[in-house]
């Protein structure tokens, strides 16, 4: 009987990051601008994407989308009804999309005919932070109906993404939520990040969001 110490040095999360880099190179090769929309459940990710699609389409931009949910195709149907190509991903028991799922979803999309790809992640402010997908930018969407403490409760996802979107600002007064406090929390954690206030319902901030994505 012999006893050995074996050096391994393999990072399981790095496997996802390597696949994300592969996706990123593929997007670059085809000139596809891809964006990862993370955020809380019911914060309005789909509604924001719908509003952006409508505006971008007027400018002649060809948009496609990947929607991620634990189950169902509600979001995919909503976006497809706007006449764009949508790949729906059901994660089953998983709480996030990962680079591997995206790698397979983009095989089904014709990247040559896409300028912009919106990826709607599973609604969750925790797990998606561990799994970059290879997009140009990562966004986090929250809304005033969740209260004013979301940033303090989930600092990592806000710290490691590029843009934070506070949606449903038209309801701030009714909800008695202090928008300035949310922005202040965000700037303390990520002063170089972009903070955008939107209302998918009234259209407020949508053009600013499109500009922030460089579109």
């Amino acid at each position: 009987m012999f006893f050995h110490v074996i050096s391994v040095g393999k990072d399981i999360l790095a496997v996802n990051r390597e696949l994300a880099e592969k996706n990123r190179r593929l997007f670059e090769k085809y000139g596809v601008r891809a964006f990862d929309f993370m955020g809380s459940i019911g914060s309005g990710k789909t509604s924001l994407i719908e509003e952006m699609i409508k505006r971008l389409r007027e400018k002649g931009v060809r948009v496609a989308a990947i929607t991620g949910d634990v189950s169902g195709d509600d979001d995919a149907k909503r976006l497809a009804s706007l006449g764009i190509n949508v790949e729906n991903l059901n994660t089953g028991k998983e709480c996030h999309l990962d680079a591997h799922l995206i790698e397979h979803a983009i095989e089904k999309l014709n990247l040559d005919s896409i300028d912009v790809l919106f990826i709607e992640n599973v609604g969750n402010l925790v797990c998606p932070a561990d799994f970059p997908l290879g997009t140009e930018k990562r966004l986090v969407v929250i809304s005033v109906t969740e209260g004013d403490d979301m940033v303090r409760k989930h600092p990592v996802i806000f710290g490691t993404s590029d843009i934070a979107v506070l949606n449903k600002v038209d309801l701030a007064e009714v909800m008695g939520v202090d928008i300035a406090r949310i922005e202040e929390d965000y700037k303390r954690i990520n002063p170089n990040g972009v903070f955008i206030k939107t209302s998918a319902k009234t259209g407020e901030g949508i053009d600013e969001l499109i500009r922030a994505l460089g579109l």
């Binding site: 009987m1 110490v5 391994v8 040095g9 399981i12 790095a14």
Partner: peptide
């Protein structure tokens, strides 16, 4: 970020 995001198997001890 240079560290803090890993889940790395560093070493294993085995019997043969």
């Amino acid at each position: 970020i240079t560290s803090g995001r890993e889940c790395r198997v560093r070493e294993i001890e085995i019997e043969t």
